[in-house]
Simulated assay, not measured.
Amino acid sequence: MTATHLVTGAGSGIGAVLADRLVERGDELVLLARSTERAHDLRADLPGATVFVADLADADAVARLADQLPERLASVVHAAGVVELGPVSDLSTEAWQEQLAVNLVAPAVLTRLCLPALRATGGTVVFVNSGAGLFAGPQWSAYAASKHGLRALADSLRAEEQGYGVRVTSVYPGRTATPMQQKVHDQEGRTYDAGDWIDPATVADAILHVLDLTPDATISDLTVKPR
Rank of each mutant, 00 (worst) to 15 (best):
A19S: 15
A66L: 08
A44F: 06
D27E: 12
A101Q: 10
V105P: 05
D212N: 06
N129C: 08
A39I: 08
E84C: 10
A144Y: 14
D199M: 01
A101S: 15
G48R: 13
R43I: 10
W96Q: 03
T4Q: 12
A132P: 01
Q97V: 07
M1C: 07
K183L: 14
T191G: 06
L91Y: 01
G15W: 11
E94S: 14
D55F: 15
V126P: 04
T2Q: 12
G15K: 12
Y172Q: 05
V77R: 01
S12T: 11
H40K: 13
P215N: 05
D45C: 08
A33Q: 06
E98G: 06
T2V: 06
R158M: 00
R167Y: 00
D196L: 11
T121E: 11
D60A: 15
N129V: 01
A159C: 10
R119K: 06
I198D: 03
I207M: 04
V125N: 03
P47W: 15
A3D: 09
A152G: 13
G149E: 02
L85A: 14
T218V: 00
L110W: 07
L134Q: 12
G149A: 05
A63K: 10
G48Y: 10
L104N: 10
R175G: 12
L100G: 06
G131W: 11
S75L: 11
E84Y: 06
D199P: 01
A19W: 03
G86S: 10
R38L: 11
D212S: 05
G81H: 04
Q181R: 04
V224D: 02
G81A: 05
T191Y: 03
T121G: 04
